[in-house]
Amino acid sequence: MIFAFDIIILIFLVVAAIISLSVKDLLSSAMIFGIYGFLICLLWAEMGAVDVAFTEAAVGAGVSAVFFIATIYNTRRRSSD
């Protein structure tokens, strides 16, 4: 564990989490959530949990962001019902 590296990742992690919750545009929110996943993957890799970091990089930062974007593209502001 490198302390300075930890602190930098944790600060960015909190910033990314708050921005992805507070931003109005859903697409930006999904992208920043992907960044959050990538940062937490870095944190796990740095703590030595390489298998978990690998899963997070593939699922959290990669595929789940794509799923969010695919869903957001198919939503509209007003309901059609």
Partner: peptide
Amino acid sequence: PGGGFQGGVI
């Protein structure tokens, strides 16, 4: 590191 889940997702 890796395995079925990660490889399958990729």
